[in-house]
């Protein structure tokens, strides 16, 4: 009730913040241009000769690697730089409400960006007869992937008042989360490591868990993976913010 009103107020403010500055428009244009470029040019959408969005979703972990931290980097570092964090956290609002509100606002924004890719769905349906269930699963996976990345960016943005540092640290952590399950890396690892070890390392990767969604498989374990990355990163955000305040 009260918590929800506070979260809603913060979500509204943050979303408004994206659209009153050029960030939202720059991001949306770049995101849509890049998804188009990767899907059709690099991903050989037409030459594949199959009615699916594999060439679309397959690039998302890499595309989000740079774009999601760009959305998340300002969340807390900006509050600290402006000093508004002192206003926000002396309001009758808990730290959790503030964290969840900010996270939800940016996630909604990313969901909007993702929703604006609908022309590829129309295109593939117009050209052929794809399995729209698989496409829907791909979208669900992509949204969860974006959420997990965003939670990590949220965490790194709480660490510093410098947005550039927040961005870079976030990209490095996310790169690790990708590479741990990236096929060339796991192949390399399996040459000298125990296959069990390789499997454990890969289990920490977003690639491993995003793959199922791309094939249209909704596995509870993948949901749990993404939910726990988000939960952990947001919890860490809370700990970091508390730490700063304790001095």
């Amino acid at each position: 009730m009260n918590a929800w009103t506070n979260i809603k107020a913060i979500v509204k403010r943050e979303l408004g913040g994206y659209f009153t500055s050029p960030i939202a428009y720059v991001f949306l244009v770049i995101f849509l241009l890049l998804t188009g470029f990767f899907t059709f040019t690099v991903g050989n959408f037409f030459e594949r000769g199959e009615a699916s969005l594999v060439s679309f979703f397959t690039w998302h972990p890499w595309l989000y690697l740079f774009l999601v931290p760009a959305v998340g980097m300002r969340l807390w570092s900006e509050e600290r730089r402006l000093g508004t964090i002192e206003l926000l956290l002396t309001m009758p609002v808990t730290t959790w409400q503030a964290i969840v509100g900010k996270f939800l606002a940016s996630w909604l924004f990313l969901a909007l960006a993702l929703a604006l890719t609908f022309p590829v769905v129309i295109t593939v349906n117009w050209l052929g007869d794809p399995d729209n269930g698989v496409i829907a699963a791909g979208y669900v996976g992509s949204l969860l992937l974006a959420g997990a990345y965003l939670a990590v960016s949220c965490m790194t943005s709480a660490m510093t008042r410098n947005q550039v540092i927040s961005f870079i640290v976030s990209v490095v952590i996310l790169l690790f989360l990708i590479l741990a399950g990236f096929t060339p890396v796991t192949d390399l690892l399996s040459r000298f490591a125990n296959p069990r070890v390789v499997e454990v390392v890969a289990a920490f990767s977003v690639m491993t868990h995003f793959e199922g969604f791309q094939r249209g498989v909704l596995d509870l374990r993948d949901f749990i993976f993404f939910a726990s990355v988000m939960g952990f990163a947001l919890f860490a955000t809370g700990v970091i913010i508390r730490g700063h305040r304790a001095g």
């Binding site: 913060i10 509204k12 403010r13 913040g17 000093g83 508004t84 309001m91």
Partner: peptide
């Protein structure tokens, strides 16, 4: 509370800012 240096959300209008703070209150 009026913190030191009177912080405010740079990208908000005065009206939007006061409305937001009132909402949190």
């Amino acid at each position: 509370y009026l913190p030191e240096n009177a912080p405010g959300y740079a990208d908000m209008t005065v009206h939007g800012f006061l409305n937001f703070m009132a909402e949190l209150r």
